[in-house]
Amino acid sequence: MLSESMQKMVDRFLRYIASERRYSEATLDGYQRSLNQQGAILQQMDIGDWTKVSLNDLRQMAMRMNRQNLSASSIANKLSALRSFYQFMLEQGIIDVNPARSLSAPKQARPLPKNLDVDALEQLLNIDDHSLLGLRDRAIMELFYASGLRLAELVGLNINDVDLKRRELLVLGKGRKQRLVPFGSKAVQALEKWLKVRGQICPVGEPALFVSMRQRRMTTRAVQQRLNVWAKRQHIGNHVHPHKLRHSFATHMLEGSGDLRVVQELLGHANLSTTQVYTHLDFQHLAKVYDAAHPRAKRSKK
């Protein structure tokens, strides 16, 4: 239970966001539970007044919540409520400084998407369907796995962005940054077959590389649906989506080359740290590369 003075301040804040911000009942309940829990922790730290709290006190409180095995996202939500609470007190002239303003939540773990192994990809891409849609979808999947494009990058491709002779794609990535991405022979073959029949459903003047039966550029949703269709048809147990093909590309490239910088460039990542999280190698492969590459790890010949 909060002290009377601390509870009064919480109630005053809740009345404000209910009347002025018109927050829902569910949101108000969440804010109340969060502030009551954090206030109780502060009282355990012998702090009985919201206005006497320092940034260091709040950091200690966050550490206590972390030791309670609360998830990073749960702690982040609670601290967000606390920042709003203190911002309210600042705007009301109750305090001069918001001690929670620079309070940062613990970093949330970024789950790694699972990749398909090489055998599963061979099974997925081994399509014996020479229909118009079969040829188009085979080209889409081959290009995904060959280039590691994002879904939006693939559907945004125009026919003039593809150079089959040089096996290069001109890709417009995040932040409208362009990059050249190579692709392999299997993707070349699949694209050549698709381009021979593309005109059957593509109206004159349509620049999109991949078009739907409605004679316009495919949407991201349409591509996702077609991948799921083929995953079921090819008896792939895992749910297959474009991000999984992108991650499979990155993982297999890194396992084959060990060159993180190259994979970063191919994926269009601005920061290497993004690539480090995005890709993963099993420890045996890492150990093998380390033993072969590090001068002090190489065994001396006897």
Rank of each mutant, 00 (worst) to 15 (best):
216 R>Q: 13
200 Q>F: 06
225 Q>C: 02
226 R>L: 10
235 H>F: 04
204 V>W: 05
192 E>T: 15
204 V>K: 15
203 P>N: 08
232 K>V: 06
236 I>G: 09
207 P>N: 05
199 G>I: 10
221 R>E: 01
222 A>N: 07
204 V>Y: 07
216 R>D: 06
191 L>F: 11
235 H>S: 10
223 V>I: 12
206 E>Q: 08
223 V>P: 07
193 K>I: 06
189 Q>D: 13
224 Q>M: 04
190 A>N: 07
235 H>W: 01
220 T>Y: 00
203 P>A: 14
193 K>D: 12
199 G>H: 11
233 R>H: 14
211 V>Q: 02
236 I>R: 04
225 Q>I: 13
199 G>Y: 04
214 R>G: 06
232 K>E: 03
217 R>F: 02
203 P>T: 11
207 P>Q: 00
231 A>W: 01
191 L>C: 11
233 R>Y: 08
235 H>P: 08
191 L>H: 10
214 R>Y: 13
195 L>H: 06
200 Q>G: 04
212 S>C: 12
222 A>R: 01
193 K>Q: 14
236 I>F: 03
206 E>W: 01
219 T>E: 01
204 V>A: 15
201 I>N: 02
211 V>E: 00
197 V>N: 04
206 E>L: 00
188 V>I: 11
231 A>R: 01
207 P>Y: 07
203 P>K: 13
191 L>M: 07
198 R>F: 07
232 K>W: 00
202 C>P: 07
188 V>Y: 11
227 L>P: 06
206 E>R: 01
203 P>C: 14
195 L>W: 08
212 S>A: 10
204 V>N: 12
202 C>Q: 09
193 K>H: 15
222 A>M: 11
213 M>E: 01
210 F>R: 03
194 W>M: 01
193 K>R: 15
227 L>E: 01
201 I>P: 06
203 P>E: 10
208 A>C: 08
233 R>G: 09
188 V>R: 08
198 R>C: 06
205 G>K: 08
192 E>F: 14
195 L>D: 01
214 R>D: 07
208 A>S: 09
223 V>G: 05
200 Q>N: 09
232 K>C: 00
212 S>M: 10
234 Q>L: 12
230 W>H: 02
231 A>P: 05
226 R>M: 15
233 R>Q: 14
189 Q>E: 13
232 K>H: 06
201 I>M: 05
205 G>Q: 02
216 R>M: 08
212 S>H: 09
203 P>L: 13
202 C>F: 10
228 N>K: 15
231 A>L: 12
234 Q>K: 09
210 F>K: 03
233 R>P: 13
